[in-house]
Amino acid sequence: MDFIVPPRRSKRSHFTLDQKHAILDEYDKCLERGSRIAFCRAVGIGDNTIRLWVQQRETGELRSRSKQGREDHRLREHDKRLLKQVLKENEVLKAKLARSEAAVDILGKASALLDAMAKSAAATDPELKEPEPQRPEWLTSKPGKTSP
């Protein structure tokens, strides 16, 4: 192994971002069985720490070496306009959904009322026979076809 271990003041000192990336680069080069553990021992880092750094690098928490300084996480002006537009569209769609649900509810109640009126009319007028429950057309079988 020709990797130079970065000097630290003590075992509790932290590695810099560049040192972490250099250590991870060397760690990735360890391909032989047991070489990664040997590398961790040589550097003086626990294998859990290396795994944590690898995970942070994969999720983007360990910032890139090319990006010096702080990243700007604030929204840009275009993104703010787009967000406002999407939120407004979301409110419009929520209102449409509420109106549609209310209409379906009203239609259901109207259907139940008409059904009750038909049953009531049949009960009071002896000439009207009891209405048979109607099956929707798409549920009725076609002549000549047998259902399984």
Results as ranks from 00 to 15, higher is better:
1 M>G: 01
1 M>N: 02
6 P>S: 09
12 R>L: 05
14 H>F: 06
17 L>I: 02
19 Q>N: 02
20 K>S: 02
20 K>P: 00
22 A>C: 08
24 L>T: 04
27 Y>F: 07
27 Y>H: 01
35 S>V: 06
40 C>K: 06
44 G>W: 05
45 I>K: 04
48 N>P: 00
49 T>M: 08
55 Q>V: 14
56 Q>H: 13
57 R>N: 12
58 E>F: 04
58 E>R: 13
62 L>G: 03
66 S>V: 09
66 S>G: 07
67 K>S: 08
67 K>C: 07
71 E>W: 04
72 D>I: 04
75 L>M: 15
82 L>R: 13
84 K>H: 09
85 Q>T: 05
88 K>L: 14
88 K>D: 09
92 V>N: 06
93 L>F: 08
95 A>K: 13
96 K>R: 15
99 R>P: 00
101 E>F: 01
103 A>I: 03
105 D>I: 00
111 S>F: 10
115 D>L: 14
116 A>F: 10
118 A>R: 03
124 T>L: 10
124 T>A: 10
124 T>W: 05
129 K>H: 11
130 E>L: 12
131 P>E: 10
132 E>N: 11
133 P>S: 12
134 Q>H: 02
135 R>D: 04
136 P>G: 08
139 L>P: 00
144 G>D: 09
144 G>K: 12
147 S>H: 02
148 P>F: 15
148 P>L: 15
